[in-house]
Amino acid sequence: MQSERNANFNRNYNDYICSVAPKTKEARTLLRAFFVGGTICCIGQFIRFALEYWAGLSGTELAAYVSMIMIFLGAFLTGIGVYDRIGKYAGGGSIVPITGFANSVVSPAMEFKSEGFVYGTASKMFVIAGPIIVFGVASSVLVGLIYYVYFLVI
């Protein structure tokens, strides 16, 4: 990118822009992200305890049910137009938990419905979540290989 600078590139101007551009209010943003993200995680933990206590689930089965419920909640809140409002307030706080992942899949799916179910909803569904899945799978394979080699050596 750096080598492709055009003839008019003006370093002074860019430095000046950086120095006067309105800044994100970091303290406020971080606090909001912490509290909303924490609340979402607390809800998840509550569901986990509830399922363990009342439904008698445990282990991976329990984890799967909790994830399913949280993903459903994220998708549902996106569908009724609430999640983007939470996101505006919370920033990273509502993107990082699993509900944010649901939001990133459902929102383009809704948005591109106007281009049809195949070329719209289905093909655009992973526009935002796609990279997360790709890097998630790729890095898990990599970590798995390292793990395997480590135990071969030991």
Partner: peptide, 17 residues
Amino acid sequence: ERQYRYPLELGNTRPPQ
């Protein structure tokens, strides 16, 4: 927004500029 940025329902924040 559809053409240049993100879906409307995506819960992201906009930078102050």
